[in-house]
Structures are given as structure tokens and as C-alpha cells.
Write a protein that binds this DNA or RNA. Structure first.
Lengths: 224, 224, 224, 224
DNA sequence: TATGAATGAGTATTCATTCAT
DNA sequence: GATGAATGAATACTCATTCAT
């Protein structure tokens, strides 16, 4: 079976079922504990059928991971209508960041795990991280240019560190069970982030608006 | 072999060899890929001998992990002779923090992985994290009391987030190959940390306040 | 492979081959010495295939034993056309009894052995024994009602003892190599059995009593 | 260690401890499940020590079995003062027979099991059985000579069958949990035995004694 | 395409036995 | 003699993958 491309409607459905079943399985079960039989059972197909569509568990996981990463890319995009207030924009970005990582926490962990064994997964992971890093660095650079953030900070390294703070918190919060609510977490992450980059206090910028977060409600288009 | 307690010098050496070999193996190989026979070969004993000292791979890993966690506890203690300057003390703490996690990055990742499957490992991991969180929260609280840090920050949550930033950076830096040198990393982490908590710049503060140095004297063994 | 039900003809054949091979192996080899690989080799399948149909050696043995017990149940039924003469009927029953136990002597011994370790086997064994005990007790009770046997004998206990005599003799005869021929054995067992229950000699009784033959008609399918 | 004969007092004690521990273990545990380590633990010696006294588990079991068989030989001897009444003498013999087999039921079963694998054990078992068979055949022959039992019965085969009845009942009674008390069992076994060999009813012999069993109370010296 | 039976490499684990101390 | 650490042969079992139907 060399031609893996699906030809018929029926085949497309089977493939989709296997992918969905695989994603479910990888979310619930540690990587090595995921059995192809489990996936097939969930998908309602026989074991032999799996190999019509995938060469191995690795290939299946690769596709699942790529799909997840694609979703995270999409989710990370701050939509149009972002307020001008930098603080509100950072908050909006942090909320998206936290949600994106929270939604796929298990699978990202698994991807990290798989990355230690397979080069291709490591590359996928780096790609994923790079998107967030670039976005963060870009936002910081813009603030620096506007004279709103400490200009001596290295944008890339700073974005890695502060982005890592958010990403890591998503893990601690969801996987390790640290108790807090999203609003509290986002607010604090944003304050720390703002303080860390020396963001000129909103008091100067938004003198008349005591509630930056209310402005954030209609926010977005791009990260900080 | 029900009695697992080692009775002779020879036995103690063999056990130590197995532990050392296990640690090596767990550092180099993904958890599920570690074979008991690999460990035995490294330790220079037959595989039957393994079961004289451990019941399973899990038990071996448990001991290895406990040892690593113990080392990290020890390494996280900021020793005496630290300068009284809060900024310098944060930097010292961050350096220790980064080194502690860097040195055992692989094993901690593995512990996280193992924690998803075994409750006991999850508990060990929480203990480990808690020590660092407490230390961080305590340091922040002291600075707040001294009027040197933003008093409105929740100490625990802030410590989790900023500690996570350091911990996560250790991972990105070492495991994912982000290029930078330790000094640059520590300096930046410290600046971000200090900015995040609103640490009053030393130059301004230290002049008129004799407090920091005297306070530092009684806090010499604790991080920020 | 959770679904153990066989779906195809091929599967049914393989399963049957494993059962047959297992029965052979258990007949030739002490229980603990039976290797799953031996069974697979006899059945001409790889050892992986074994686990498609059975979870363990115990499960295989359970099915083999159940089959044997089923056969013994069937073989113990004294068919129609048995003479009405009680003595002749006891003889017929003893012959069947002896043959049934002789044919499966090894497997029954093995079942006894297995029963010391596994509760389910003990239950199977008790069931098997109970069938023969009931049949014997029932036959005796009928003879007692007809005034042909000592009415003071406890039917159940007597059946256990005399049945045990036959069962045990099958073992001594076949497994321990006591030399004699079946006819001699059956004749003697029958004389002892008849004497033990005080069976009224047929010559004396049958003449004036039309009962035995009529009674035999309704007891044609039951042993003594 | 070629010389296995024990030289010192200490050695004799250790050996005895191992034998006792082995007997206990073999009584409680199926043959293959008996671990040499168990035996050593019970005996309070280290594993290595076992091999100072025995070559293998088989050798140990051989000695244990020989000791048990020796005891059963001894126990089977009906002591002096046996009453002349044949019925009482049969009862006394049956009681001894039942007790001897009951006391060592588990070990005899194990010996049977071991006999299927090792020739030497089979021989030991045959020896044991032979003693009881001889004794039974001899008793029957005597009764036949005295005109008290059916002279047409083959003494050896009859003794095997009736002896088997007792032996087998001991097993069913003790190992399989058939409920009854010893007195009931012995009385019934004796009645069946007596009836089976056509023993001339006591009424002829002990006219004035309506309670044969009371005479049996002071019985014994030899079997029937 | 789908099925599910067959395969066998790979791994953990047990335990009798040996041997240095 | 006694100890207990070391050995490794023997075996059960799993599961990804192949293949005939």
C-alpha cells in the first residue's frame, strides 16, 4: 500500500475517524501507553485498517500534533479592533496565549515528550514556539519604538522568557492543579509582564480611563 | 528476595552502581525506552541482580528522582555571604534556580512524564515545586514588608509565575537549544523579575534606607 | 484483543486446534510443566496467536477441563436397553463409571491438582463428582425402596464411598499400573458393590417380584 | 560439597530444621509453588545453606516423603489386644487406615503428583500402597480360611478396591470438604467392607453382643 | 477498502543454583 | 559451616505489523 492519498469518500471518513480517535487517545493516555488497538476501537475500525492510512503510531501522532499546532497558530492571532492601550493589548494577548496553551496542554506535553525521541517532532515544537516568540518579540519591539518599554531589553530573549512564563503557568494551572481563576491569572500575568518590560504606567496614557480591562473587551488584532 | 535491606558492603556498592546507572539511563533515554537490561549492563551486573534491589523500573526511577529532588533542594539554598542589595540577591537566587533546573532538566521532564501515569511521582513533583514556590513567595513577602516591592501582588501566585519563567527558560535553553550564555540569561531574568515585582531601584532606595543590608543579614539563606 | 469471540471459520479452527493441543499436552505433562509454547507448537501456531484466544494457561486448562467433564457427564449415562436385573444394571453402571474415569484419569488428576490452587477448578471438580454421587445415591435409594438393598444405609455417603472405590480403582489400575483386565475389574467391583449394599440376590428376588423390570423401565437412564 | 553426611551437632540441627520447614511448606503449598527460599526462611537459615544439606528441592521432598511414608507404615499397624470379633477388627483397621491417610492427605496427593514426573517417587508411592494392600489381602485371606468371608474373592484385587475406597474417602472427606464425622464414616466404611466380602454376620459369631462396636473399643493388633 | 487472524521480536520477571567472604 | 550477593536460563506475555480473505 504505497499510495496513501485517500481516493474515496468512505476512505476520507475512515481517516478522519482515526485522526479524531487518535487525538482523543493522545489526550487521555501517556504516549507510550496509547495502543493502536485503542485508537481503532474508538474509531470503530479493525486493526488492519489503521495501516491503510498510517504507517505507524508516530505518523498518526505527527498528524494529530500538526493539527493541534495549526489550531494554536490560529488561536494566537489577536483579531481586529485591538485598543490602542498597550496594557489592554498585552492583557488580551496574554488571555489568548493562556487559552491556547491551556486548551492543548496535554498534547503539547506529549509533543515535548515525543520530541526527545524523534527529530521531526522537535522541529514541529520549535516551529510552534517560534510563532509565539516572534509575535511576542515583535510586540515588544513596537512598544520600545514607541518609547513605552525599556529599550535595552533584548526583544527575542525577553519574549521567550515572558512567553515561557505564560506557557508554563498554563501547565502548572491545569496539569498540576494550582487553584485560581482565569481572570486573576491573566490580570497578574499582565501586570508582571508589563512591569518586567518597564511599560510606561497607564496612568500617563489612559488618564481618563480607570478600567483598562473594559477597553480590552473590544480589543485585538495583534499581540503586544 | 523479600528483604530488600542491604546487609553487606558489597551489596551497598551494587545498589549504588544500579542507582548511578539508572540515573544515567534516565538522563539519556526517554522513560519508556529505558530497559532494565541497559541499566544492568551499565552497572555491570546481571539482570537478575537488579531484582535483588528493586522491584521494578518504577521503583528505581522513584529513588533516582528522589535523589535528584534532594539535590535540587540543597542547590536552591542561597548560602551566606550574599550581598544585602535586593537586586543582587535576586540575581544570585535566579542563578542558583537556573542552575538547579538546568542540571537536572532531563530528569525533571521525565518526572513530569512519569507523574502523568503514577500518583506517587506526581506527589514528588509537587513537593519539589512547592519548595521553590515557598522560597520565592517568602522572599517577595519580605521585600513587600520592607516597602521594596509592589505590596499588591499575591506572593504565592507571583512566585509561581516568575519561578515558572526561570524554570521554563532552563528547559528552552538547554533542551530546546535556544542559544545564549548563562550570564546574559541570568541578568535578563533578574531584570524582568525585578521589574515585574516593581522592585524599587537600589540606587534610589539604598541611600536613605539602612534597612536592606540589615534585613539581608537575617535573610542570608533565603532567595528572593 | 479484548473481544475473544471468534468471528471466522479460520478462527474457529485455530481455537479448536489450540484446545486439542492443550488437552494432549495436559494429558502427557504435569500441569506446571506444560509450556504455552509447547501447546502452540502442537497446534501449529505462533505463541502470539495463543493470546488471541486465551488469556493464560489457566484459562486454556479451564476449557479443556470443562470439555472433559462434559464428556464424562455424557459417558456416565446408562443408556436405554439396560437389563432390568439390578445386578446387571449395577454392572453396566460400574463399567461406564470405570471407563469414564479411566479415559480421563490423567486430566482428572490434573484437575485435582489445579483445584488446590484455583477456586474455580475446585468448583468444577465438585460439580463433576456431584453428578456421579447423585446418580449413585439415586440408584441406591430406588433399590432401597424396592426392598432390594439395605434400607439403613445413608444413600449419599454410601454412594460417595462406593463411587470412590470405582474412581480410585481406575486410577490405581491405569496410572499406577496394577495389572488386570476390565472384565475382571468390573465383575469384582460389581460383586463388592452389590455385597456392600446388601443387594438381595437376583435368583431369589426376581422370581416373585415383577417390580425390578418395570422399575428398570423408568430408570433406564440412571445408574445404580 | 560432596560429603553430605552431617558431622557436627549444629549441622544436624540445621538439617532437621530444613526438613521440618520443608514438610510444613509441602503441606501448605502446591509442589511447584514451594520455593526453596520459603523453606529456608521457615527454617531460619540463608539460601546458601540449603545446598549444604540437599542437592535440590526434589531431594528435600524425597526425604520428607520418605519420612511421611514411614510414619504411615507405623500408624497402620494394629496394636496388640485385637478382639477376636472380625467385624470389630475390620472396624479398628478401617479407623487406623482412615486416620493414617487423613493425617497426611496433602503430602500423599503431592507424592502422587510428583510421581507423575519422577520415577523414584512413583516407586515410593507403590511401596506405600503395597504395604496397605498386603495387609488387607492378608486379612481377607485369613477370614476366607476361617470360612468367614466369600472364598471366591481375589484377595489382592479386593484389598486394592476396598482399601482404595477408604483411602479415597479420606481425600474426599478432608480435601474436598464432604461433611461427616469420623465415627459415622468408619462405621459405614466397615459395614460396606463387611458386606462386600460377605462377612458372616456377627449375629452368628457374637450372639450375646448386640453392640459389636463396643467390643471394638478394646480391639486391635492386625488388620482384617 | 475492510477485516481480523497470525506473526514474532522484544521485554520483564522468577528462582534454582553457585560462590566469594 | 553459614551467609547472602550474583548469576542466567527459562518463561510468560504484549503489541506493532503483515497478510489472506
Amino acid at each position: 500500500m504505497i499510495v496513501r492519498s485517500v481516493r474515496t469518500e468512505r476512505g476520507r471518513k475512515t481517516r478522519a475517524a482515526l485522526l479524531a480517535a487518535g487525538r482523543q487517545a493522545f489526550e487521555e493516555t501517556p504516549y507510550d501507553a496509547v495502543r493502536i488497538d485503542d485508537v481503532c476501537t474508538r474509531a470503530g475500525v479493525s486493526h488492519g485498517t489503521f495501516y491503510t492510512y498510517f504507517d505507524s503510531k508516530e505518523e498518526l501522532f505527527g498528524e494529530v500534533a500538526a493539527a493541534v499546532v495549526g489550531e494554536m497558530f490560529a488561536a494566537s492571532v489577536v483579531g481586529p479592533g485591538v485598543p490602542g492601550d498597550p496594557h489592554a493589548r498585552i492583557e488580551a494577548a496574554n488571555r489568548l496565549y493562556l487559552r491556547a496553551w491551556s486548551a492543548n496542554s496535554r498534547l503539547v506535553r506529549m509533543l515535548e515528550q515525543a520530541a526527545t525521541a524523534e527529530q521531526s517532532f522537535a522541529a514541529l515544537l520549535l516551529d510552534l514556539r517560534e510563532v509565539f516568540v516572534r509575535r511576542g518579540a515583535e510586540g515588544l519591539r513596537r512598544l520600545q519604538e514607541q518609547g513605552l518599554a525599556d529599550p535595552s531589553l533584548d526583544p527575542r530573549l525577553t519574549a521567550i522568557m515572558l512567553g515561557g512564563m505564560v506557557e508554563h503557568f498554563a501547565h502548572v494551572w491545569l496539569d498540576l492543579g494550582e487553584h485560581t481563576d482565569e481572570q486573576t491569572a491573566v490580570t497578574l500575568l499582565t501586570r508582571l509582564w508589563a512591569g518586567a518590560i518597564g511599560l510606561t504606567p497607564p496612568s500617563t496614557t489612559t488618564q481618563s480611563t480607570p478600567a483598562p480591562s473594559s477597553a480590552a473587551a473590544t480589543a485585538a488584532e495583534e499581540g503586544p
